[in-house]
Nucleic acid binder design. Structure first.
Lengths: 233, 233
DNA sequence: CTAAATTTGTGCTTTAAAACATTGTTATCA
DNA sequence: TGATAACAATGTTTTAAAGCACAAATTTAG
């Protein structure tokens, strides 16, 4: 299949969801200062512990936000799709990054230097409020996720992860295949389980006709069942 | 010992940490509209699913923020001390509350109607930014907590909870006793374990001379040990 | 195009933590 | 005051999930 060409890349005014609240001056300011960065598959975008330098927007591709825990076990915290902002939490909280971000697939990122980002945040109230809204929603998600990951059983966690993926990245033309291809390991890291258990549980789901698999291609056959499993474990 | 008297209650200008960024007009506005509410021990302040009506500030006492998960198992998400704001995330995210909040001990809460809170947020950039900072820090904590609760073993989780409590509520005059008295159940709900296991693990810590117990009174004897246990589980 | 490396799939074993059961202890209150 | 309930402590059993080992399949690299 043909690789996507650069020409398809959306310009910053279409990618940046907060563009509409910027003043004409600010728009020009952003346009003059943002930079474009390309990341290859599996390349790191930033590391836990690094000092944050840029507010970032995913322009194209898919990236994972994750933490390394005990014994370098990985927990995927969030997965981003184009148009989503990241890397700004640490800037605002005056902290170092508390997560790693890496590209799942070849990705393009627009970056805006921290001081420029901060100067707009401090001058444009609507801009600031938008980020407040965004992070307020993220905090709700994070707390919900904590409880899901700690209390649900393996099947429930995996079911939830599959639903989350399909909600976040959507389905392919067939209306069933989840529009992201993850390794079993990533799926495990998303659902807080070992790779073996992710594989095993996926197989069980296939046997129960809840999903269908073809390599990394995952099809949701019986969404209701999946929802039910994710609700009670 | 004598109960604290109402006269000791700090006025809103001392409790509200964002007071300094308010304009004289806004200060008057807040003073004219905030209300004071008293909650008894164990009384609910708000419930998961409720529509948020007020931004709240804990003026006195201690409260827990928690979620009911699978099979009504409880997970304490956060514990607040005087001066901390709560109940505003749902307002900003235009959602219902996604947590329950209840008083650990007799507590006093200052409340500001949502529309008033929002009108200040939308007009005072510094005010808005302060909340952005606050919630950015909370999100970092929440993600860190997710990993701790999912990856650490029982001893590590309990050690972490004890350290968190002592950091949050401080120590009594003896320089060792944690300045909050929790039931074993609350301690378990904070550390994602069953009550039995919280009790068992506390006993083990006592036997290993890491802590000392006298009923609900918990003394940290060997903080270094506790830190080490919390780090590796 | 083969060889090495990674990823996937399965069965078996071990273990951490939950579930259960029981008893002692401390508040609560009619 | 004794009755009742809530809380704390501990031992025993069960179970979910991790850990391990190894084979098969797929990718990647030389």
């Amino acid at each position: 299949m043909a690789k996507k060409i650069t020409a398809e890349l959306k310009p910053i005014e279409e990618v940046l969801t907060v563009w509409d609240v910027l003043t004409p001056d600010e728009r020009q300011f952003v346009k003059n200062h943002y930079t474009i960065h390309y990341f290859k598959k599996n390349e790191m975008i930033h590391c836990e512990g690094d000092i944050p330098t840029h507010m970032m927007v995913l322009a194209a591709g898919k990236v994972k936000v994750y933490k390394e825990g005990v014994g370098s076990r990985t927990q995927i915290i969030r997965m981003l799709k184009p148009g989503e902002n990241f890397g700004y939490r640490a800037i605002i909280a005056s902290q170092t990054y508390n997560t790693n971000v890496a590209a799942f697939e070849a990705s393009t990122v627009y970056m805006l230097k921290a001081d420029i980002f901060l100067s707009i945040l401090r001058n444009n109230n609507a801009f600031c409020y938008r980020f407040l809204e965004e992070i307020a929603a993220d905090l709700g998600d994070s707390d919900a996720r904590t409880v899901n990951l700690t209390q649900k059983h393996i099947r429930g966690r995996l079911a939830e992860a599959l639903l989350l993926l399909s909600k976040n990245y959507g389905l392919e033309e067939d209306g069933a295949t989840i529009n992201i291809y993850l390794s079993r390991e990533d799926l495990a890291n998303l659902s807080n389980m070992t790779t073996s258990n992710a594989i095993r549980t996926l197989s069980n789901f296939v046997n129960e006709h809840i999903i269908a698999m073809d390599g990394r291609k995952l099809k949701i056959i019986d969404e209701d069942r999946l929802i039910k499993i994710s609700k009670m474990g």
